[in-house]
Design a protein around this nucleic acid. Structure first.
Lengths: 214, 214
DNA sequence: GTCTATATAGTGATAGAC
DNA sequence: GTCTATCACTATATAGAC
């Protein structure tokens, strides 16, 4: 009757989750090639052969992790509401995306490794799902610009900028902390304040570029 | 009399350069662990043992590449002139940094892999050289803000934002191109225009945040 | 200086006892 | 289902002929 999950027992489900959690940790720290099954098995508290009882290969574990990631990653952009107030919506998107970097830095790095390598696994999803979603939301932004409700900038690059700025704090966290120093303040609230200023000023409807002497 | 370089003959110098160029290509594409000596040797047009005649190990090649990189990478920030016009200086910095991403995407990715991994090799330089330089230039920016010549934002995060935005176009180029699509315009001029708008508006002295309904 | 051949270590994956 | 032992393969690095 009920559709059965592949993993039947409680222990099996827990072990699968433990493996995925361990693998996320290791892949995010070292990348796919840098990670070894030994490390993952130890972090998961299992023997290597036992780990391979749950997943057929290292590749399969990695694929499992990536599979759901893009959807989670894009949820904040999906939530951008065409019926909402433009600046509120954009600023909320920025805040949510930054929050995800703070709460899920390992997922961010897993994603960063994948893109850096040329997206061998989720390449098709980038040209498919991702491209479609960005086109849709860029159209919403463009409409808001047409209506004069936010300043006019290239909407797709606006989205790129939000990705770059928010993910930077997760992916380059080591550098951020090295520069701020051991006594440095918590970077996250500073980052949030900075990004709010930045996008507040960028999108203010009356905004015009400062004179640039090129 | 003349201080001799270690590599004496012309061929040796050329081979060394060929190896470094090949290694940059491979490391930037696959990361340190993902790269193999076979790939590097083939790209350099040498046999693997011959390659190891020039460098004692894979690690040594990688170290050699990283060694000079930080200085090159930070040259544009070093060039920020405290005596110049604030907005001109910042916008020039942004343009130079973006140009470096366009002209040296492999170096950018080599650097990105290193930071993602937790900067195991150039960690000390980040807390030393880099931190000092950023502190110095942040002080310049802060002075300009005190004088009301550019708008007040957190100067260090301002620098972070320039790094994040410019390097994004090199490190995540695959994603940028996937989203823009096969027919998409050349992203680089678009990126330059976008970044000029963004920093022009962010730094305009009279700029105030748009009202944000949090 | 450059090659062929090979030593050595590490890693993904499997066999088979329990 | 889980373990010990091990295979097969790959990759770094070296030895020694030329």
């Amino acid at each position: 009757m009920a559709t059965m999950r592949r993993a039947r027992t409680r222990i099996q489900q827990e072990n699968r989750q433990a493996i995925l959690a361990a693998a996320l940790e290791v892949f995010a720290a070292q990348g796919f090639r840098g990670a070894t099954l030994d490390q993952i098995a130890e972090a998961a508290g299992l023997s290597k052969p036992n780990l391979l009882y749950y997943f057929p290969s290292k590749e399969a574990i990695h694929a499992d992790l990536l599979e759901g990631l893009l959807d989670i990653w894009l949820a904040p952009l999906r939530a951008l509401d065409p019926a909402g107030d433009p600046r509120t919506e954009v600023l909320r998107y920025v805040r949510r995306k930054l929050e995800m970097s703070r709460e899920m830095p390992r997922e961010s790095r897993l994603f960063a490794y994948e893109i850096l390598q040329g997206a061998p696994r989720l390449g098709p999803l980038l040209s498919g799902t991702l491209r479609t979603l960005v086109a849709e939301k860029a159209a919403v932004l463009a409409r808001w610009m047409d209506e004069g409700r936010i300043a006019r900038v290239h909407p797709v690059h606006l989205i790129f900028s939000i990705w770059a700025l928010t993910q930077h704090y997760a992916d380059f966290e080591v550098q951020v902390r090295a520069v701020l120093g051991p006594e440095g303040a918590d970077p996250w609230p500073e980052a949030e304040a900075f990004l709010e200023s930045l996008y507040g000023r960028l999108l203010a409807p009356g905004a015009r570029d400062a004179l640039t002497s090129r």
